[in-house]
């Protein structure tokens, strides 16, 4: 039940709802909990609600840091 997935907000709907998309799958979600969300933002979706925004720049920084921390290879 605790599954939460990143999705991208592509359209706002009335009643603090929005359409979010991931891998071609679209879903209506509530954006009540993320009032600052904008079209094109990534959000974590859990039980039909966007819980938090995801920062693409931070995602890239994390991947760069992972590449740096990973041991040199392949051996």
């Amino acid at each position: 039940m605790c599954l939460a997935l990143p999705m991208r907000v592509i359209e706002f709907l009335p009643g603090e709802m929005a359409v979010a998309e991931r891998d071609g799958i679209r879903k209506e979600i509530s954006v009540t909990l993320v009032p600052e969300v904008a079209i094109g933002d990534y959000v974590i979706v859990h039980v039909g609600f966007a819980l938090a925004k995801l920062d693409p720049a931070e995602a890239r920084r994390t991947l760069a840091l992972i590449a740096e921390m990973a041991a040199p290879g392949p051996r």
Binding site: P6, Y42, P56, L63, I66, M69, A70, A71, G73
Partner: peptide, 23 residues
């Protein structure tokens, strides 16, 4: 864009595991 698949890269996972084992 966030490249979600990049967080599942097998080769990087093996190298991270090697770094854990080394440290």
């Amino acid at each position: 864009m966030i490249a979600f698949d990049a967080f599942r890269d097998g080769e990087t996972a093996r190298r991270l595991a090697a770094a854990i084992a080394a440290e």
